[in-house]
Design a protein around this nucleic acid. Structure first.
Length: 602
RNA sequence: GGCUCUGUAGCUUAAUUGGAUAGAGCACCUGACUACGGAUCAGGAGGUUGGGGGUUCGACUCCCUCCAGAGUCACCA
């Protein structure tokens, strides 16, 4: 209902703008019609032509059959538009052939554009906030978080490249009962263990005690049940659970020893996260800490009550009635006066708007919270914030493993650090097998394995439509052949090799006869700017990923069947090498937008 | 049970937002210039787009209805 979509101006390929104007004139002249929807698409490979006009919508204006209408428009365009070389009509589709000169000139323009496809944001461009990552401090990052981090980072980069100002933020869930669980378990059973003494990464160490807590908790519950207690009651009465609750109260009362422990363990976690984030290649402009924001909600309650959007029940709890919108009554404030999750989120959203004056905000959060965000945006709207309608929940599907859904409590997690290492190791063993890396120092080689392994991982997670649930088989799913990151990187590396072999400066000839294949590649290149816009508008890195793959596939068949450095004429060598170089640049930009790197050799 | 999302070749997936004969990759078969880098390329086979109905020039896409899977419906976060 409230999503921030479709606010990007669609940047059309230039030829479409030209044609559109001419077609409008044509319709006015031939049929005295105005205000028609003019729809283009790429001509299918099996037909002759570059751009296709779908004429079915225009039949009402022409009052003629599809073929005849297409024929008439085609004739008009061929006569009036220099770029239209010829046309053919198939059913209601008018296929237009555009001149080679046009395509070649388009290429030269693109070739001479730095950072082609990317629009620089100026100061007046709107600001987009992208929230992503947002970890809990009681456990390390796992495979599901990887999708979140890559998605959020990539979407932020893509929106930035579409010409908007972007701020990346996260909220760190550093308070609450779950944190106290790790703390209690460490206090009771940790024997003073630290990351230094154990050699365990800080976030993993704290995660270990979260699991420990659960172990003891389950045992205590079982013991109580064995003594005849009801299960539900036992779950509330288990001594270790009560200790955790006590600790939360002490934390809220700011008791110094508890706060000190909390700060110490948080430090361990953050140090561990910093390492992981560095390897992930993600960053943030601002961190929000729940320990600081959790009180923000209370202000909101007053505002809501004042405006009559919320109401108070006899026990003091505060509610909002969303039944008119087809949803339920939702609690905003507990009867004991403490804020619930959504209240914090409301407060944080308002705080962020004060911090950044954003026009749009996207939350990268798993789809299990679809309902939560629907409610959140609705409440913000009811409170009268006009930016509420520009909030978007970037909802993504779970990552499944063959062994089933992963959840930390069920013990089937794939730890992100381990997993990244596995990917990099795989890249390493493949590279060694192929043995093409002579002359690289060990340091350079390791950097390369990192680029390839992480590239494979990022590309694999991002090429799928975010909202789809995906199955991840660590052994089989990641392949270094086919539609993969390394396939794209390999193409880039080969182009760099061409560049190395050709030592003189590339000079683009004024004009040159281009082949059908070259024209295809140029067409793809000219689409790149629109792909970025489209990808940003849809919050979908998958579009950029699939574009990169299409381009690479097209280029590879070209490369395989065409002499580049040994072409007949010097002009052809320059053009073909220039085309290759530009393809390489676009690959690099596309991969960068996915958060992935490209190697000069591999 | 209510609401939401998902369902496309054996597997992983795409389809210009309603357009032409539903594209790719993996796996499986057949091939490739004494390799401008073979992590490549050319070709083959593989589809009732979960089933059924409807809307229209046209449906993977929109509507209805079943089927299957998932999520959610907490004074948890």
């Amino acid at each position: 209902m409230y999503d921030g979509r479709n606010i990007f101006t669609k940047t059309k390929v230039m030829i479409e703008e030209i044609l559109k104007q001419e077609i409008e004139k044509c319709l006015a002249e031939l049929y005295s019609a105005t205000e028609q929807s003019i729809q283009f698409q790429k001509t299918r490979k099996d037909f002759k032509g570059d751009i296709t006009l779908v004429v079915f919508q225009l039949l009402r204006a022409s009052k003629k059959g599809p073929e005849q209408t297409a024929e008439e428009i085609g004739n008009y365009l061929k006569e009036k538009v220099a770029e239209v070389a010829d046309f053919n009509v198939v059913k209601g589709f008018l296929n237009l052939e555009i001149t080679q000169e046009y395509w070649y000139n388009q290429f030269v323009t693109a070739y001479n554009t730095d950072d082609y496809g990317v629009v620089k944001a100026d100061k007046t461009a709107p600001t987009y906030l992208v929230e992503y990552s947002s970890p809990n401090t009681n456990k390390p990052i796992h495979l599901g978080h990887l999708r979140n981090n890559f998605l959020g980072y990539s979407v932020a980069e893509i929106i930035k490249a579409s010409g908007k100002n972007v701020k990346k933020v996260q909220i760190i869930n550093d308070r609450g009962i779950h944190i106290c669980k790790s703390m209690i378990a460490w206090q009771e059973y940790g024997n003073g263990e630290t990351p230094e003494s154990s050699g365990i990464k800080g976030d993993h160490l704290v995660g270990k005690y979260y699991v420990e807590f659960d172990k003891y908790y389950k045992k205590e519950v079982a013991d109580l049940v064995a003594d005849g207690m009801e299960k539900g009651q036992a779950e509330k009465e288990a001594p270790i659970f009560k200790k955790a609750q006590d600790m939360l109260r002490s934390w809220e009362a700011k008791e110094p020893t508890v706060i000190a422990l909390w700060e110490k363990m948080n430090e361990w976690v953050f140090a561990g996260f910093a390492v992981t984030y560095k390897r992930l290649g993600v960053d943030f402009d601002k961190n929000y800490y729940e320990s600081e924001t959790y009180l923000l909600g209370k202000k909101v309650v007053e505002i809501g009550l004042d405006k009559g959007v919320f109401y108070k029940k006899e026990d003091g709890s505060v509610w909002i009635d969303l039944s008119a919108e087809g949803l339920d009554e939702k609690i905003i404030l507990r009867s004991d006066g403490t804020a619930v999750y959504i209240t914090q989120d409301i407060g944080t959203a308002i705080q962020r708007h004060e911090d950044f004056y954003f026009s749009h905000m996207a939350y990268t959060v798993a789809n299990e919270q679809d309902y939560h965000f629907k409610v959140l945006f609705l409440i913000l709207d009811k409170l009268g914030y006009e930016w509420a309608k520009n909030c978007y929940h970037l909802s993504y599907g779970m990552v499944d493993l063959p062994s089933g859904r992963m959840k930390s409590r069920e013990g089937t997690v794939v730890d992100a650090d381990d997993f990244m290492q596995e990917m990099v190791d795989t890249a390493k063993s493949i590279a060694k097998e192929l043995g093409k890396l002579e002359g690289l120092s060990e340091k350079e080689a390791n950097a390369l394995y990192e680029i390839v392994g992480m590239g494979a991982l990022k590309y694999f997670l991002l090429k799928v439509d975010p909202k789809k649930r995906m199955l991840f088989d660590p052994k089989e799913s990641i392949d270094f052949n086919g539609n993969t990151g390394p396939f794209i990187q390999y193409t880039y590396a080969r182009i760099q090799s061409l560049k190395r072999k050709h030592t003189s400066e590339v000079e683009m000839p004024k004009s040159v006869a281009i082949t059908a294949k070259e024209q295809e590649i140029i067409k793809l290149l000219t689409e790149f700017p629109a792909v970025i816009q489209e990808s940003a508008a849809n919050y979908s890195p998958a579009l950029v990923a699939n574009y990169a793959y299409d381009l690479v596939k097209e280029y590879n068949t070209y490369y395989q069947n065409t002499s580049i450095l040994t072409a007949e004429s010097n002009e052809l060598i320059n053009f073909r090498l220039g085309l290759s170089v530009k393809v390489g640049e676009v690959i690099k930009t596309a991969m960068r937008l996915l958060g992935a790197g490209v190697p000069d050799r591999m």
